[in-house]
Amino acid sequence: MNAERRVGDRNILDRFTEDFCWVVEKYAKYIVVSGFVAISTGRSRATEDIDMIIERMSKEKFIEMHNALDKEGFECMQSSNPEDVFSYLNHGDNVRYTMKENKMFPPEMDIHFAKDELDEWQLKERQKIEFTGLDVWFSSVEFNIAFKEELLKSDKDMEDARHLRNIFKGNFSEEKINKIKKMINSMRKGANNEE
């Protein structure tokens, strides 16, 4: 596929994601996971929220990042106080950021800190996907397929997984998917259905 894309080729979700990631990248290792991986590789559906996992960081560093996001036009829906936002994240909750100009309406960036060995592994193996034309770190195709098929399992998720299998056919490891699925079963099942 042709990897060339011009800046004007970006849609609303592309612009929102790249702008948000451009700020986060300065402070922490992150990955974009789940639905947006399928959409940015051509799956013909939209989404209101983009899911991101960020490596754990100190409160001081997080406050700097939050303030930088604020300066670039983003706001957190749960609180404007970065200490509160950090507290939510540090307790394992998700928080969501939107663009101020959208007055808390989508698109949203749904973020959480890495919570276990699986998330650490995803962060370690993050990748850029050239043909998306986006300067964004994604979790690997194997992780996305495994989570969607083994944990999330809604119609939308199973269809996303099928899209990824079609698009990346011959370029992913089935053995690795099975290994990740086993880890999901031992570490995530019975907790909650969040990637």
């Binding site: 596929m1 894309r5 970006r10 051509g42 013909s44 939209a46 899209h163």
Partner: peptide, 24 residues
Amino acid sequence: IDRWANFIKDKPQEEWRPKFNEFI
């Protein structure tokens, strides 16, 4: 889903990306 994935794999992005972006 299969047809669409095969279509975008085979075609240059200029052919499908503008319509895709309009859709989003």
